[in-house]
Amino acid sequence: MARDKRIIFLALTMLILGMLASTGAFAGAELLNVSYDPTRELYQEFNAAFATYWKKKTGESMAVKQSHGGSGKQARAVIDGLEADVVTLALAYDIDVIADRARLLPENWQQRLPHNSSPYTSTIVFLVRKGNPKHIRDWNDLVRPGVSVITPNPKTSGGARWNFLAAWGYALKQNGGSDARAREFVTRLYRNVPVLDSGARGATNTFVQRGLGDVLLAWENEAFLAVNELGRDKFDIVVPSTSILAEPPVSVVDRVVDKKGSRRVAEAYLKYLYSPQGQEIAAKNYYRPRDKKIAARYAKVFPKVHLFTVDQLFGGWRKAQQRFFNDGGIFDQIYSPSR
């Protein structure tokens, strides 16, 4: 009996020790940047550049750890305790939620850095099969019968929300555009969607790997990446006449940096995104830079598009989220059986 007890005791000790031993095993003097899916390549390059810059400027070495995933899922992880020094997400709403729900940063976070805290922008374009066999030129080609459109589920993917709003905005800006017209247009568009992947990268894989669909609605940078990585001979990029100005925002997470004492380097990290070097790296990775000089140099890469913003057409992300994507919102109504 005594030995039995000893074994139980041993097991419990193991359980507790196992938990404690692994606690904080990875705590270091480094930044954690919690980001969304398509920025992997961008931050890989940027982090290395910043570490060199920081070493030269202050003599301190530092490293940046990355976490990528769906924008909403990442925001939720930060709310639930993932200790991100900086967040670089797909849409302002996701950072708003961190401020609202967990009070990890002030409500006016977006005013702290220039350009609505978005150091780079992007837009929504079409990726089509080589030679554009279905002759897709603009948004209204997407609602034609027989055109199959791949876009992820806006309820689980940040990128898909930009896609949805871009389509809505296009319809709104046509002659005689109204909310009713836009709704009808978007409903017809989603009738042509055979699969709703849960994330932007999943949708790209469906389009590229499975060969499903005639057109993929994608971030501009994702479309460029897909063409470069997966074959110039397989895909073309089509830029529509009008699209949305996607502004992926960045912010320091105040409660975390104050706790970890990393505010100085975290703020410098985000500022560096606005520097010519940072802007250059963004442009190289197909994000539209804010810096006019750099933008001019990359003008050939980024075609001119009429761009509208979420604030102009939808009164900001909080309203847009409420109206279109929450349960019972317009997206759900499109799919509800009564229609």
Binding site: T156, L196, S198
Partner: peptide, 17 residues
Amino acid sequence: GNMPMVSEVTPLLIITK
């Protein structure tokens, strides 16, 4: 395929919520 009402399983609805 995850189409609402057609091929959306319950665990996915939990994730959506």
